[in-house]
Design a binder for these strands. Structure first.
Lengths: 228, 228
DNA sequence: TGCTGTCCGATGGTATACCAACATACGAGC
DNA sequence: GCTCGTATGTTGGTATACCATCGGACAGCA
């Protein structure tokens, strides 16, 4: 699994986003996730061309990608719209997240090295800072990096891809739950609990804490839009 | 979740695949899954245009979609290739499948109605027929329809999407495992075991049987390409 | 007043044209 | 003979042109 260390790796010149398409994809994805485009809003291709300053080819390919990611829906004979989120879908997503994250957390607790623990501690302090600043997007980023470390430490790269994608579909919901009173304090404390179990290398307890965390988030989400 | 029954629904004219792009997407996906394009093979756009008889715009949008699905990889400055499958990825996929399928099977066992059981029985007989004919693709289809019924019965539509996508990434592997001697008999018997537990509405046992089934498939897969 | 037929703008579907970057082959020079 | 530079063809990236269809506005007719 470990690549054979290439001594010349440091010399390699990386050209990260390079193509217009990749940049546009990133922008569009963030625009949808951040709520700039409302769910159900039509994504008129020519309008997007002007807004992003690229041609329709680029926009269309980006839309195909987002469609496969589940962030964009295609209405027959009407074109793309920002995907709407039914509560039932959100519920399923929280369920799947609970399963995958609990597994990842448990595995991480089994194998966590000092280095991993240090990374997690770093994400936690970032989380503290952003939650004191009451910055929902910052909290989201810190939480994301916390979980990313966990998934990668346990070798669950594919599960991480899936979870990331699912999370982007419920991103608006996540931001809303974070704005709930007292969520700013209960969220970090639950994550801290997960970390404590990992630090002590207790897989079972870590998984349980993780399930509790996701369940709490799902409950808040339901109280917000459940009835809709 | 149930739509209000529209008495005029039967009048509605459906135009299912209509666009060139959707047809091309279907064709390409099947071509990759069936192994017509080998893993790692370059997908030269202009060549695909001729093979499918469509323009590059269509091909490119299809490739974007398949890329997001994980069936196609983009090599920087070289273009798309059919995604290669490392054993480590396959291992992770089997792991995730085990988790999601076990959950779905358990939920199905909890709520399975006679109608669902009848559908499952139908898939089973299809499975028997195809495995006697030693038709790997037929077995795959029957297994797929068996699981589709299970996931939908329990309301796990999103998990089903995920599992379908994962399965398409390991499709070649699945066909190879089905061609293994005695797999043609052990596979169906394990699935039959799952069904027996569902029929008796025993969630725990069903989940266990399901995990065993996936684990067995993973073990065979590893014995085939594990060392590679 | 209300229905219907027609026109026109908006929009997505599809095809094509152009360009830059890369890979390969080939030839000149050491 | 080996190496380097150059020419050329292939390929993906991007932009644009054209067409069919849909939806709404408007006008005519009962």
């Amino acid at each position: 699994m470990i690549k054979n260390a290439d001594p010349f790796a440091a010399l390699r010149i990386e050209t990260p986003p390079s193509t217009l398409r990749e940049m546009a994809l990133e922008r569009m994805r963030r625009a949808i996730i951040s709520g700039l485009y409302e769910p159900g809003a039509r994504l008129v291709e020519r309008t997007l061309c002007e807004q992003l300053g690229v041609s329709r080819s680029v926009i269309r390919e980006v839309i195909r990608h987002l469609e496969a990611e589940g962030l964009v829906e295609m209405l027959a004979k009407q074109g793309p719209i920002v995907a709407r989120l039914e509560w039932d879908d959100a519920r399923q997503i929280y369920e799947i997240r609970a399963a995958l994250e609990a597994t990842a957390v448990a595995d991480c607790a089994k194998v966590a090295t000092d280095r991993v623990k240090a990374l997690l501690r770093q994400s936690l302090s970032e989380l503290d800072k952003t939650s004191q600043q009451n910055s929902p997007l910052g909290i989201l980023d810190a939480t994301t990096s916390f979980y990313r470390t966990i998934f990668h430490a346990g070798g669950h790269t594919i599960a991480w891809d899936i979870v990331s994608r699912l999370n982007s579909r419920i991103s608006r919901l996540r931001v809303m739950t974070l704005s709930t009173p007292n969520r700013t304090t209960s969220g970090p404390s639950q994550i801290r609990e997960i970390f404590a179990c990992i630090e002590k290398n207790e897989p079972e307890a870590a998984a349980a804490a993780c399930r509790a965390h996701v369940a709490a988030a799902a409950a808040i989400a339901e109280s917000i839009i459940g009835g809709k």
